[in-house]
């Protein structure tokens, strides 16, 4: 797994490459917590290059959403492959998380 972090105005964009599983998710969590600590409260996670996610990855997303809510921030997910989106639907995560088709669309939500 590889994470590319970008900042556009005051929005942090994380592009996740590869797999978010029980083995790699702790590193992903560290990266996000670090950004929150450094003052980010608007985040986009771009899943265009994500091949795989398990409950460990969902746990990080859930935790991030909660933390950002406490500091009046927001998390938006974008560009998911269909079979990844299905996992968000099965688990009901799509009911509390904004999921949009493209990164540009996500940027317009802030």
């Amino acid at each position: 797994m590889e994470i590319i972090e970008k900042r556009q105005n005051d929005i942090s964009i994380f592009k996740v490459n590869g797999r978010l599983d029980s083995n790699t998710s702790p590193r992903f969590e560290e990266k996000i917590l670090e950004a929150i600590k450094n003052g980010s409260n608007k985040m986009i996670i771009d899943f265009e290059a994500l091949d795989y996610i398990s409950s460990a990855g969902l746990r990080v997303i859930n935790k991030t959403t909660k933390q950002l809510k406490h500091i009046e921030g927001m998390l938006i997910l974008c560009s998911m492959q269909d079979y990844i989106k299905e996992v968000f639907v099965i688990t009901g995560f799509d009911s509390f998380l904004p999921i949009v088709s493209t990164c540009d669309e996500a940027l317009m939500k802030f």
């Binding site: 398990s54 409950s55 969902l58 746990r59 859930n62 996992v87 099965i90 688990t91």
Partner: peptide
């Protein structure tokens, strides 16, 4: 609560 999520999936 996140426990049980993996089994549900």
């Amino acid at each position: 609560q996140i426990g049980g999520l993996g089994c549900h999936i």
